[in-house]
């Protein structure tokens, strides 16, 4: 999961630094993730995992770190498979 998130983040995150330099728990907004890029990343995740982000996960916290994104995607995947 973290690897896929990293790949999509590298492609859609428009970050000023390399994703390899970012720890799983590092703050992505501090690393330069814009709100526009976070939505692009969200769309890419939805496409890749064939899921849709529910309203309660559409906030800054869900995209604040690689860990948080992975947790959010896992939560949706579990919910939508159930």
């Amino acid at each position: 999961m973290h690897d896929v998130v990293r790949q999509l983040l590298a492609k859609h995150g428009s970050l000023p630094v390399s994703v390899d330099e970012i720890a799983n728990n590092a703050d992505l907004y501090d690393a330069g993730l814009s709100s526009f890029a976070s939505v692009q990343l969200m769309l890419a995740l939805e496409e890749h995992f064939d899921v849709e982000f529910p309203e309660h996960l559409l906030n800054r916290k869900s995209f604040s770190s690689i860990d948080a994104i992975a947790a959010a995607v896992s939560e949706i995947a579990d919910d939508q498979a159930a």
Partner: peptide, 13 residues
């Protein structure tokens, strides 16, 4: 522009 980005994923209540 900012709103239109959010509306790519957000559904108004």
């Amino acid at each position: 522009g900012n709103t239109s980005t959010m509306l790519l994923v957000n559904k108004p209540d």
